Amino acid sequence: MQDSFDVTTIIFLGLAVFVIWRLRSVLGQKTGAERSPFRPVERNRTEPSAGRKEGDNVVRLPGADRGQSVAPAAAPVRDWRGIAEPGSPVAAGLEQVLQIEPSFDPRSFVEGSKKAYEAIVLAFNKGDRKTLRSLLSREVAEGFEQAITEREQRKQTAETTFVSIDKAEIVAVDVKNRVAQITVRFLSNLITATRDADGNVVDGSAETVVEVPDVWTFARTLGSRDPNWQLVATEAGG
């Protein structure tokens, strides 16, 4: 009986060992390199996304192309409409101004020149020497003051009413040694008359609107703290 028990026990032990061996061969053993069950879609970081093909748009993070060459920024395209023809001498001159003083705005300059034109004409007719000195170069101011003095000696007065300034266009730009000279052609409609001591009109008309062309040149040292342009030359426009 004892021998039978021993033989049976040995048989069952052998079966148990066989079953355990088969299970291990089917299921395998853990090696510590298995993918975590909490990251079922984890991919290698160098692996492209599924469905992504070469040439597809990619959102790149800053510094992603740090090792690649970068094309130089293109020169800014100026919008010269209403100011100058692209490629013209005026446009080239304005580019020179902007190279020295990037904040320069040609459109603001044109608007400012119209205000200066009106202010200077009115100051001249009123004999306002103080205003003229602040807006004119010394040479031009001397010429204006001489004309005012001669008019006063004749006991004459001048009257001017601005009806409109129909045109103010830049016709020339010159930059030398950081000094810019910009020439503007004005076309205005005025009512202008000169009266004698008795109030009689001796020149012009107190009622007729006349079209007056003028060509004025303004100058300023670029980059200086003084933002004001001064009138440095005048001539009658054709």
Rank of each mutant, 00 (worst) to 15 (best):
M1I: 10
Q2C: 03
D3Y: 10
F5T: 13
D6P: 01
A16R: 14
F18V: 15
L27V: 06
G28M: 06
G28F: 06
K30V: 13
T31D: 10
T31S: 15
G32H: 04
F38Y: 10
R39A: 08
R39I: 07
E42N: 05
N44T: 09
E47W: 05
E54G: 08
E54Y: 15
R60W: 15
R60I: 14
P62T: 08
G63C: 07
R66E: 15
Q68P: 06
S69C: 05
V70Y: 12
V70L: 09
V70H: 12
V77S: 07
W80G: 04
A92Q: 14
G93T: 06
Q96V: 09
Q96C: 08
L98N: 03
E101C: 12
D105S: 13
Y117C: 07
V121H: 02
A123M: 13
K126E: 11
R133W: 13
L135M: 14
L135I: 01
L136D: 00
R138W: 09
V140W: 01
F144R: 00
A147W: 02
I148E: 02
T149Q: 11
R151G: 02
R151I: 04
K155H: 14
A158I: 11
F162W: 08
V163N: 13
D174L: 12
N177Y: 04
V179C: 01
Q181C: 10
Q181A: 08
D196S: 09
D198T: 11
V201M: 09
V201I: 14
V201C: 05
D203E: 14
T208E: 11
P213V: 06
R220Y: 07
S224Q: 06
T234E: 03
T234N: 03
E235Y: 05
